[in-house]
Write a protein that binds this DNA or RNA. Sequence first.
DNA 1: GACATCCGACCAACCAGACGGTATCTTTTG
DNA 2: CAAAAGATACCGTCTGGTTGGTCGGATGTC
Lengths: 187, 187
Amino acid sequence: MVSAKRSRYKSIQPTLLLEAANKVVVRQGVDALTLDAVAGEAGVSKGGLLHHFPTKEALIAGMVQQALDKFVEALQQELAKDLAPDTPGHWVRAYIRASALDDQENYELHFNLLAANFTNPELLKPMRDFWQDCHMRIMSSGLDPAVATVIRLAMDGLWLTHLHNFAPLQDPLRSQVIETALKLAQP
Amino acid sequence: MVSAKRSRYKSIQPTLLLEAANKVVVRQGVDALTLDAVAGEAGVSKGGLLHHFPTKEALIAGMVQQALDKFVEALQQELAKDLAPDTPGHWVRAYIRASALDDQENYELHFNLLAANFTNPELLKPMRDFWQDCHMRIMSSGLDPAVATVIRLAMDGLWLTHLHNFAPLQDPLRSQVIETALKLAQP
DNA sequence: GACATCCGACCAACCAGACGGTATCTTTTG
DNA sequence: CAAAAGATACCGTCTGGTTGGTCGGATGTC
């Protein structure tokens, strides 16, 4: 009989640790992100946590990477979904939809930014590279570069208001804003 | 003869302490914002610093308030400057110009946000109130609310890219973006 | 003298990380 | 195949260093 937990080991996935770290940050703030807190949230000892992430910086780097991966994946899916591929603004429209898709994810993403920026800005390098890439794609999206950039910035700002809870947009305004952005990104 | 520093006392202005704190954060990152570091930067002992700001939270609250005051003042000046007051979008245009005015100020402002969010999100309440007010003014700016909100978000995003150093905009794109925003905010 | 300003040594709390140990899995060897 | 040997996963205590804040006192002003 193979029980559900046939073994104590091989059970801790780094992914679970990263998600536990996310929970801690989102719920209790950046300063609550201690190794003890993360270990507690994940139901692991500190030693176990440090076994997978040898330093706190490594943990945060992992959080950043995971959040980035999620967004990149969402972006890929939206790119594939577009009804009018290969028209000007195609990429920008995907960016809009990916940004708007799941506030929760972006929320976490930006909290991770806070944590990383706090600990060591260098940890944001993967993100910087990614956005640099975005920037180039936006410039060659076929739209007017300035308009396309305004759209990009607006989407980034959308996260920001959520993150800091600065008059975060409620529906229906939120949907209207996204629709307006999409309209601006029409060829 | 009244020398420049006629006395050791009465010389420390809370404002100088706040500016010292800003310098520390901008130069060395959020985690370097310790009482010792601020006191050192200001040329004051820790006791002296704590005499004016009894807790670290009080210091950060002061930083937030100061940054907010600066932005509000810039906004007031831009409101007064507008060539076409009392036309639709008047307020939004002022917001754009105030946001674009001095990156350095907004830069500091957002670093303070980081610091505050790190220590205690509650410290951001004055900012939340301010942005709530902004939101209402935008809704009644005479422009299409969704368009006006897109513009607002884009300006917020402008700071964000600078703050995290995510492909921050360089001239001439930067000016073009601002001009595009202004154009969108024309009546 | 009363009061405000400022000093700097000191303390208690906290935290990242080290370390020595234990439990489980894998490979080697007889 | 069994048992030993080693590798890997994980635990939990301990410590060195840091930090926010206290406190007694020194120095100046009214």
